[in-house]
């Protein structure tokens, strides 16, 4: 009895220390997250004027939203383009970075060189440079060089697709991937790093045991690697979603930035919130499906 009381005391002290450790973060969340989010929602329902002592807001209800959905000529168009891009880039980036991480994790000659090379996008990918070079080198490259280098100049990707006689949708999809391959590879740098770290954390005893049991490579991947990576995969999915959400190559984001620079804040807030909500629904579906169908299988 006495003993239990004492341990509870320790637990209490420990929980107090927990609060101490996260206290700065709590203040940060209130000051730099919760309050701004609420303000931003209010802005989206108001008409804003900027005066000397801050901003003046007048509540106008749903007018901003009605404007961007009903009257704005391009917004819905941008939105659907962004969402399509989002839905199709996400699985490709996640798969691509997983494959890259698996490749780089193996033992072979020149592994260190390739690792150093493959981390280059990590340094450059998140910024101005990527916009510049993907705009210039990227378009240049995908239009001609990739096609030529892939096919050796003999026949183009289109010809291969025509020969294979694929349905029109799939053919279009394949072509889109090939023309976007530059962006996709350059956007999967950090994800590869995260996967590599995850792969390293799988204890090698598991593989040894499976070898003794006579598992094939595929079984090894499907029953050990993949389940052990499930948390990292979730992190990668979330990271990729956020990254795609704010990337400059996104039409909505691009226009939002230009509006922000022009100091039009009310309409911009409404645009962003509507965009966030619609992407949020997609995000929720993807994360939910992942948790339900893949992660729960092993836990």
């Amino acid at each position: 009895m006495k003993n239990r009381k004492r341990t509870r005391g320790i637990e209490q002290i420990k929980s107090r220390y927990g609060w101490i450790f996260i206290s700065t973060w709590l203040i940060g969340v209130v000051l730099f997250f919760a309050i701004p989010v609420i303000q931003s929602i209010i802005y989206s329902f108001s008409q804003m004027t900027i005066t000397e002592d801050g901003v003046n807001t007048v509540w106008i209800g749903l007018k901003n939203y009605k404007y961007i959905i009903g009257e704005h000529t391009d917004y819905l168009n941008w939105l659907s383009r962004s969402i399509t891009n989002f839905v199709y880039s996400l699985p490709i980036i996640v798969l691509l970075s997983m494959v890259l991480a698996l490749l780089l994790n193996q033992n072979f000659r020149g592994r260190l060189f390739f690792r150093a090379l493959y981390f280059m996008p990590v340094i450059i990918a998140t910024g101005v440079v990527i916009d510049l070079i993907s705009g210039m080198a990227g378009s240049d490259m995908t239009s001609s060089s990739v096609n030529e280098s892939v096919s050796g100049g003999m026949f183009s990707v289109q010809d291969i697709i025509a020969v294979l006689d694929l349905p029109a949708e799939i053919a279009e999809f394949v072509q889109k991937i090939i023309s976007d391959i530059f962006d996709l590879i350059w956007n999967s740098g950090i994800q590869t790093v995260l996967f590599l770290a995850g792969l390293q954390s799988i204890p090698s005893t598991l593989y040894e045991a499976s070898k003794v049991e006579g598992a094939t490579k595929w079984e090894e991947f499907w029953f050990i690697t993949f389940p052990m990576l499930s948390n990292v995969t979730l992190l990668v999915i979330i990271y990729t979603m956020v990254e795609l959400f704010v990337s400059n190559s996104n039409v909505v984001v691009d226009h939002v930035y230009s509006l922000m620079r022009a100091a039009i804040y009310d309409e911009t807030s409404a645009m962003m919130w509507f965009y966030f909500l619609s992407i949020g629904v997609v995000m929720g579906i993807i994360v939910g499906a992942y948790k339900k169908f893949l992660q729960n299988r092993w836990s």
Partner: peptide, 16 residues
């Protein structure tokens, strides 16, 4: 806080 991008809270932060 991970999911809501900085972009969303930037305008109010600036005003504050």
């Amino acid at each position: 806080t991970i999911l809501v991008p900085d972009m969303m809270v930037l305008i109010p932060r600036m005003a504050n």
